[in-house]
Measured scan of single mutants.
Amino acid sequence: MAEQVALSRTQVCGILREELFQGDAFHQSDTHIFIIMGASGDLAKKKIYPTIWWLFRDGLLPENTFIVGYARSRLTVADIRKQSEPFFKATPEEKLKLEDFFARNSYVAGQYDDAASYQRLNSHMNALHLGSQANRLFYLALPPTVYEAVTKNIHESCMSQIGWNRIIVEKPFGRDLQSSDRLSNHISSLFREDQIYRIDHYLGKEMVQNLMVLRFANRIFGPIWNRDNIACVILTFKEPFGTEGRGGYFDEFGIIRDVMQNHLLQMLCLVAMEKPASTNSDDVRDEKVKVLKCISEVQANNVVLGQYVGNPDGEGEATKGYLDDPTVPRGSTTATFAAVVLYVENERWDGVPFILRCGKALNERKAEVRLQFHDVAGDIFHQQCKRNELVIRVQPNEAVYTKMMTKKPGMFFNPEESELDLTYGNRYKNVKLPDAYERLILDVFCGSQMHFVRSDELREAWRIFTPLLHQIELEKPKPIPYIYGSRGPTEADELMKRVGFQYEGTYKWVNP
């Protein structure tokens, strides 16, 4: 592979701008107003304001973009700056750019259920340069409990009458099928589907988006991507930290609602779906819905739930269990780990287990898709061969690698495990991989909904998990304890083995 010439960040961002501006969906010269509902909250200060700053800094926003914060707290732009700027990672050389960014910011205080507050917000936006005809993007960085009041008031008082209007809704989209349907029906009564952007930030990850290209742009994968060759698929999300004093919020939802029903299920769809007619948003989402419709409700015998306990040999936070978090209700049975087996009941995947695993306070930070292939028929190497695996590593250190057998150097035919490896950090030294939120917010500006969740996708996802969630809430089974920093409950490994996964433990990928 030829040595790549190092590029400056300015040059890299210039390439990104060229890609972005050559499309006809990006209205570079139009006025846009980006409204952050819930501007005083954690999500706004840690993710949304920093993301908008990065896009502005790199010249990736339309030229005439204004940012308006809205929340109940009586704040000023200076207050917003004070709480969000520490997350910007701005350099001293960017000081003038930073001043320009905050000059485009404003803030309006108001209630979430008060019509007069929204009329005041609308008047404020109209007073901005060309504000009355601007395109408006409303980001709901809010708890779902206020979605209905907020969307109703936005629709009645704050819509642009000339430009387009788009609304970005953060997960969780309800707690179960019934609450999700209620919320979807409410929002759909106010906005068209092409105006609604239900954001799952995992769909903005580079390697998640790469799944489609790997599958449908490489001839070698087509013939082997089926039940005849693939023994099982494992989708993993692991965090090495616990709730760390923020367990009160987590306890309301648990690990299945927080990660599995959305992030992991979306990745499953991209692995299992048929080739779409095109890369058009609805063509892709149509195929994802077909996959979900082929999955039956989760069966309790295919589920393992766990909850982390303190590690007596650990240090600091590792010595504390979930129930030691003062914000967690006493005696909570909320799971911090889950392993679930699903089956896609169609011709391509009949009988292939899709194993979804996620948890907190585990032994490493990792998100990946792992396809394990069947054993080689007619073994001539005296059971020395391990199964081939194709691994798409989402985070950290984005990579695609194939675990395969090669001859060990020497005189004899002794096979050993090795890999074919594409590590993004080595291959793409001159490429700026956008943060997931950067990519998705740019998608909203461009009107691309491919990486957002459609209402029928959402409904099918909740259909699969709601009976299990209701059973857990009714019966309150005690989750299996696992030690902070471990791989999780051993019962999860036993479940995976029972459905056909072979864990060798003899080879570990190392970032080159």
Rank of each mutant, 00 (worst) to 15 (best):
I52F: 08
I199S: 03
R74F: 15
E94M: 07
V146I: 14
K82N: 12
S179Y: 01
Q28V: 09
N165H: 10
I80K: 00
N105I: 09
L211F: 13
F34S: 05
S160K: 11
H186I: 09
R57A: 08
I35G: 04
M37Y: 12
H155I: 03
R219E: 04
K97Q: 14
E252P: 12
P86D: 09
D200M: 01
S73I: 01
R17H: 15
T151Q: 06
D113G: 09
N122F: 08
F34A: 06
E239A: 02
H27W: 11
L235H: 03
D79M: 10
Y139P: 05
G41C: 02
R192N: 14
T151G: 08
L140Q: 06
G131N: 15
Q161W: 12
V146H: 04
D24E: 10
Y202G: 03
L203W: 00
Y107F: 13
S84E: 08
H32S: 10
T76C: 11
P240S: 12
Y147V: 02
Y70E: 00
Q209A: 09
S84L: 10
I199Q: 07
D228T: 09
C158A: 15
N135I: 04
Q119V: 12
L177I: 10
E156F: 11
W53C: 01
S184H: 06
L55K: 00
R198T: 01
I52M: 09
D200N: 05
I196Q: 06
Q161T: 15
F21H: 08
R9E: 15
K238W: 00
N226A: 07
S189A: 14
W164V: 09
E193H: 03
L20H: 15
Q195K: 06
E244P: 07
R182Q: 15
E18T: 08
S180W: 01
D24Q: 05
A78G: 15
Q119F: 12
E19N: 15
A44Q: 03
N126E: 04
D251H: 04
V68K: 03
S123D: 15
Q119R: 15
D228G: 08
F26R: 12
H129V: 13
A90I: 12
E63R: 12
P86E: 10
K45G: 05
N165G: 13
I196N: 00
T236E: 13
M159Q: 14
Q161R: 14
L190Q: 11
S157Q: 15
G247R: 05
E244N: 12
M207H: 03
K46D: 02
L128R: 11
D181Q: 10
L130V: 15
Q195V: 05
V213Q: 09
M125A: 11
R120T: 15
A78V: 11
G204T: 00
A231R: 10
Y147E: 03
R215P: 02
P62F: 04
D200R: 02
F216H: 02
P92F: 11
H129K: 15
F34G: 01
A71N: 03
R182P: 01
N229V: 07
L211R: 03
G222M: 11
F56D: 01
L142I: 07
Q133I: 13
T31P: 13
Y112V: 03
V213A: 12
Q22E: 14
I187G: 00
R198C: 02
V77M: 14
M125E: 00
T151A: 11
E193R: 00
M125N: 10
P62D: 05
P62K: 07
G247W: 05
I167S: 05
H186S: 14
H124P: 04
H129I: 12
T51F: 06
L16C: 15
F34I: 12
F88Y: 08
V233M: 06
E148V: 10
H27P: 10
L96N: 14
I35A: 08
K95D: 09
R166C: 00
F102L: 07
L177Q: 09
A6E: 15
P240H: 10
V208M: 13
E239M: 04
A71T: 03
E170H: 04
F88I: 13
W225V: 05
W164R: 07
I220S: 05
E19T: 15
Y202N: 04
Y197F: 13
G174W: 01
F26W: 15
N218Y: 01
V213P: 11
L55D: 07
C158G: 10
I167M: 14
F250R: 04
F87W: 12
A103T: 11
K82F: 11
D113K: 10
E193P: 00
D42R: 00
F253V: 05
I196R: 02
F237T: 07
S179F: 03
A127M: 11
L140I: 09
D176P: 02
A141P: 03
S188C: 08
A44P: 01
A71I: 03
K205C: 02
E63F: 11
Q161I: 13
L177P: 00
L137I: 11
M37P: 08
R9F: 15
R136N: 12
E85L: 10
G41K: 04
A217C: 10
V108D: 02
I15V: 12
W53R: 02
V213F: 11
S157R: 12
G254K: 03
K46C: 01
E18K: 15
F241I: 11
F191P: 02
R74V: 15
I80L: 13
A149D: 12
G110K: 03
V233T: 00
